[in-house]
Each structure stands twice: as structure tokens, then as C-alpha cells.
């Protein structure tokens, strides 16, 4: 089977030694097993994330994303753009949508892109996709099941989809209130999915975990507590911000709320990588602050 090729960028949080570096490690491993080739967009820049609007306004924010789209067109022509980070995906897709609706904004963006001779490479119709879409739509659930050699038997997962992989664009055919693809992935790799996990699409606070920690930690507390209530062994998520927020603040939440949380938070790519027979290192499990011991046990088998 010929490899499927995509033009991709990992986003700031997923580069080496950044907060989601283990996400990228596991994505690379998973893609190798699924025969997906990821061609990195040279010199890609930050998407502006969900907090860029305040100082960045509209046009500067769209220029950030348009530059990535143009660099993709220049270096990886014809290939779909794939982002692994929810915010990168959302930001890039939002820009493309807005520029398609607003001819003045498109003209202004092209004018600005001239500073890098990129104006002719910007594409209004190149698909901008999330890695999850590639997996579900291009590989398909059957295809995702094929490489499984170590089913994740006996592990109970709370599938935490979060916000930005789910809204406002979401995954085709899924509902905003109860998307099911993450549960399906869990089941495909032999795990047990808590399909009625009630905090599945609840916001973790996003960037406000930094600026409004008390309000965000209330959200995170509820997300973790619900996973415990449902008997989950671990949480699994497609978003690097969700992963970080829900994992790293559990210590502070324990102090604030007198709880005793120690709930591992993994990426979908980690559980697939382990089920596909990868080592813990290849699945980025060493990057989990709260160790996902049940996964490590299977990986080490």
C-alpha cells in the first residue's frame, strides 16, 4: 500500500521539549504503523492560539495562518494540511473560511504575504484537517483496527474530547454534544470506553488556566471527578491543551479541594501506539507526569 502523504505542522506545544512533546512522539509512531507520511511545513509559525485575538485582532491573526497555508502550498503542493493540535487546526481553518467569505480581508492578506513572496501560494480551497479526521476518514475504523497486536484489555477509558476538536467545526457525522469517535477508537484497540462520560465535551478552561486559575481548576476538578465516578482507569484526549490542563493541575486541585486525584491523561495516539505494539518510549509514555501504568504494563509485555 502506498503511503498517504500530508502536509503537516505540529504546533508550538508539540515541538521537542515543549509541553506536548510526547504527543508528537506518539503521533509519529502511530503514523508509521498506519503508513501515513507527514511532511512538515518548513518554517511554520504559531497559529495565534485561542488568546491571540486580544492583541492580534483580525488581520494579523489571519496573516499568521495564511502564511502557514501559503508555505504549505509552496513546499508541499496539493497535499492536505493536517494539524495535530486542536487550536492550530481551528485557527487555520477559521482563517481560510473567513478569507473565503471576506474578499477585502483576502486582498489585504495577499498584500501582506508579499513581504515573503508568498501571495501566490495561498490556497482558498486546500483542505485543512485534524489528524483525527485523517484517521477516521482516510484510514477508517477498519484500517485503524488492522495493526492492533496488543489489545488494551481491561483498561477503562474516559474519552475526553474537549472543545476545539469538537466545536465549532467538529468531525463530520458527529454531534457537538456527544461525539462518539474517541469511544470507537478505544473500543477498536480493545479498551473499555465509558460511553456516557458526562464531561466528554466540557471546557477545561483553555488558556484561562494561566490567567484565571481558580475558575479553570473548578472545570478541571469536575472533569477528573466525573472520570473517577465512572470508574475510569485513565482519561484519553485528542487535544494538547486539554491533556496539559487536566493532567498537570491535579496536584494544585488536590490542595484546593482536599481531593486525592491521580488520574493519568493520555492521547489517543498513545493508546493506539501501544496497541500497535510500540514500546512505552515510542508511545511517549515517559512524558506523562501521572504515569499511565496500565498502558506501560501492556507496552512492556
Amino acid at each position: 500500500m502506498a503511503k498517504k502523504e500530508y502536509s503537516y505542522f505540529p504546533g508550538c506545544s508539540s515541538v521537542r521539549s515543549a509541553s506536548a512533546s510526547n504527543y508528537m512522539v506518539s503521533v509519529n509512531t502511530m503514523c508509521e504503523k498506519l503508513e501515513i507520511a507527514l511532511n512538515e511545513i518548513p518554517d511554520w509559525n504559531c497559529c495565534g492560539a485561542s488568546i491571540g485575538y486580544a492583541e492580534g485582532g483580525e488581520l494579523p491573526r489571519h496573516v499568521l495562518n495564511a502564511r502557514n497555508i501559503a508555505l504549505s502550498g509552496k513546499h508541499n503542493p496539493g497535499q492536505d494540511i493536517v494539524a495535530t493540535c486542536a487550536a492550530c487546526w481551528l485557527g487555520t481553518r477559521e482563517t481560510q473560511e473567513r478569507l473565503n467569505e471576506d474578499p477585502d480581508m483576502l486582498t489585504d492578506t495577499r498584500t501582506v504575504l508579499q513581504e515573503g513572496n508568498l501571495q501566490d501560494y495561498y490556497s482558498q480551497n486546500i483542505p485543512v484537517r485534524h489528524m483525527v479526521e485523517v484517521m477516521i476518514e482516510d484510514i477508517g475504523y477498519e484500517g485503524l483496527a488492522k495493526p492492533v497486536v496488543k489489545p488494551l484489555k481491561g483498561i477503562k477509558f474516559a474519552g475526553y474530547v474537549g472543545c476545539q476538536t469538537n466545536r465549532p467545526f467538529g468531525i463530520d457525522g458527529e454531534s457537538f454534544e456527544n461525539p462518539r469517535y474517541l469511544d470507537k477508537m478505544v473500543e477498536i484497540v480493545g479498551g473499555e470506553a465509558i460511553t456516557d462520560y458526562e464531561k466528554k465535551v466540557t471546557c477545561c478552561g483553555g488558556a484561562l488556566a494561566f490567567s484565571e486559575p481558580e475558575k479553570s481548576q473548578k472545570q478541571i476538578h469536575d472533569i477528573v471527578e466525573a472520570a473517577y465516578d465512572q470508574g475510569a482507569d485513565m482519561i484519553v484526549t485528542p487535544c494538547p491543551v486539554c491533556q496539559m490542563n487536566v493532567e498537570v493541575y491535579q496536584g494544585q486541585i488536590n490542595k484546593r479541594y482536599g481531593t486525592n486525584f491521580s488520574m493519568p491523561v493520555t492521547y489517543y495516539s498513545q493508546i493506539l501506539a501501544v496497541a500497535y505494539g510500540s514500546t512505552g518510549k515510542e508511545a511517549g509514555l515517559k512524558g506523562n507526569i501521572i504515569r499511565a501504568k496500565a498502558l506501560e504494563k501492556i507496552a512492556n509485555k
Binding site: S13, N45, C46, I51, G52, E55, A207, S211
Partner: peptide, 25 residues
Amino acid sequence: PTRRFAKIFWDNIAHSGRVNELLLS
């Protein structure tokens, strides 16, 4: 705090093109 954080964030990315997470924190 979010207004101030947002300003720090934008200056951070506009300077080097990518988030410097440690400097941001």
C-alpha cells in the same frame, strides 16, 4: 489578567514566530 496574559502571549509569538513556553510562564 487575561488581557495582560494575552498581550504577553502575542508579544511572545510575534517576536520569534513560535511560543516560547517557559518565557511565557
